[in-house]
């Protein structure tokens, strides 16, 4: 099976955010593989172990994104492709167009990605890609089984579990609960250094700047107002709960 995983490098979820010169500051930030994409990598590796084949990981991003791809190689992926772009203004339209150009001449059975990225969180790119490639997709899956030319998946739809059968090739996005991603092993990390790593640019994908010009643009950036420090209620548990309900009712008018 030819399995591809699209992944994004994101800030670690424990990072605090600060703004410098109108941009999100990146100094000293720890970067990780987007957690949802990590489930996708793990699932691809499990399918490969079960059915054979190759796992190729693909990312669009700046140079530093190579590290996320190397992590995926160290986990066990076979090849990595970085579509080099340090264009900070690319939106999901741009990124999905770039990815579609990459996939157009590839033979694939399965493309996996994350449900959304924990940074910009638009949740568009993978689904757009499925449409551009005209393959069926299911988002937010928590289970995936392949048999012959069909996939059976469970999709999480606001807590409901839907079982769907889809013919391959298809694209799926990973929801939490799909699996428990492995850590890269030391031999894995050593081997990753020798695995094929391809870097592509716009010209190699036969795309012009105009064709991937973003359809949306950022006007401004801000941090949320800090919450005012609250009030710790005093007295017995009975007194505290009674006071709380009273406050919610009479001061906050919330109930």
């Amino acid at each position: 099976m030819n399995i591809f995983v699209i992944l994004k490098q994101t800030f670690d979820t424990e990072e605090k955010i600060s703004i410098q010169d109108g941009k999100i500051a990146e100094d000293g930030v720890k970067f990780i593989v987007n957690p949802y994409d990590e489930y996708a990598v793990e699932e691809a590796l499990r399918l490969k172990e079960q059915h054979g084949g190759t796992v190729t990981v693909v990312s669009v991003g700046p140079e530093r994104a190579a590290e996320a791809l190397r992590t995926a190689l160290a986990m066990g992926a076979d090849e990595a492709v970085l579509i080099a772009s340090d264009h900070p203004d690319y939106d999901e339209f741009s990124i999905s167009t770039l990815l579609a150009a990459y996939f157009r001449d590839k033979a694939f059975d399965l493309i996996l990605g994350g449900y959304f990225s924990v940074d910009s969180g638009g949740g568009q790119t993978a689904i757009r890609l499925a449409r551009l490639l005209d393959i069926p997709h299911t988002s937010a899956i928590t289970e995936l089984q392949i048999s012959q030319n069909k996939a059976t998946v469970i999709r999480d739809a606001e807590g409901d579990a839907e079982t769907l059968e889809i013919s391959l090739p298809a694209l799926f996005t990973a929801q939490q609960g799909l699996n428990e991603p492995r850590y890269p092993s030391l031999p894995g990390i050593m081997k990753a250094k020798k695995k094929p790593f391809l870097t592509l640019d716009l010209q190699q994908l036969h795309l012009t700047d105009a064709e991937i010009a973003p359809r949306t643009t950022r006007l401004s950036l801000s941090l949320p107002a800090a919450r005012k420090s609250g009030r710790i209620l005093q007295g017995t548990a009975q007194e505290q709960t009674s006071e709380l309900v009273n406050l919610l009712r009479n001061e906050e008018k919330a109930i």
Binding site: F11, I17, G121, T217, L221
Partner: peptide, 24 residues
């Protein structure tokens, strides 16, 4: 201009965006 506010990093920051083309 119509500007749209949305969260980044699940609400650790916010951005205002606009469209440069339609449909939107």
């Amino acid at each position: 201009t119509v500007s749209y506010t949305r969260p980044l990093f699940a609400g650790k920051a916010f951005e205002n965006r606009k469209f440069t083309a339609s449909p939107q």
